[in-house]
Amino acid sequence: MADASIIPAGITGMFDLLSPVAPGWGANLLRGLVRSLQIAFGAFGMGLIIGTFGSYAKLYGGPIARDLAAIYTTLVRAIPELVMIILLYYAGTDLINRILEGMGYQRVDISGLVAGIVVLGFVQGAYATEVLRGAIKAIPQGEIEAARAYGMSPVLMMRRITLPAMLPHALPGLANLWLISTKDTALLAVVGFSELTLETRQAAGTTKAYMTFYLAAGALYLFITLFSSVILEWVEKRARRGMPSVKEAR
């Protein structure tokens, strides 16, 4: 955070509000940012796991697994994230508690962090399924056939051949998903989880400096996006090393 003493007098008021020490609200915003990032990481990771299983179900699964995966991706991608979040957040926790009570256990209080990760991860999983499915199909299929001819078990084949070979094809889509994941955490503000957007709203509502705080929150989100796209670009370049560049291939 910028030191208030070197800022000209006209906008010091704004920076006082954003300062991380007590009268300022900077610490709240940063705490919200950390929570947002936790959820984004968790949801992205969970989405990757669901996506891996989902893409395998879609490509190699039996007819029923294939249809179920298709229903999952279609439904989740057609229903608004906000509705999914409300549906899973309230109805999901209610359902779990009813099942637990029915089985004779006590009600559990599901923490907002876990619920947020599960809900967003479930949504991310549908998109990740499609991205990974396309990436697996983009691998030269001879490589997979060769692995199968060597008698590799499906897990070994996945670890040694499929996942490393599909990574360069999947990375652009996954990079997009990561950016969506960071931005979707804002939706959890609607269900009352105090991540960056809700902290911003509370700070703005208390101080009445709406413009300052929303601009600050926007700047933080933009910083995350720009910073991660720099990193992702580097990762993608590294994963694609030795492959012809996209521009040349065209």
């Binding site: 950016l179 931005k183 957007t197 413009m211 929303y214 601009l215 720009l226």
Partner: peptide, 23 residues
């Protein structure tokens, strides 16, 4: 395009409604 795509729509919406609306 970068700013719009880099920030959540919810923040944009609240910035316009609460921020501009309060100005």
């Amino acid at each position: 395009c970068t700013v719009i795509r880099g920030t959540p729509l919810l923040v944009q919406l609240w910035l316009l409604y609460y921020g501009l609306g309060s100005l």
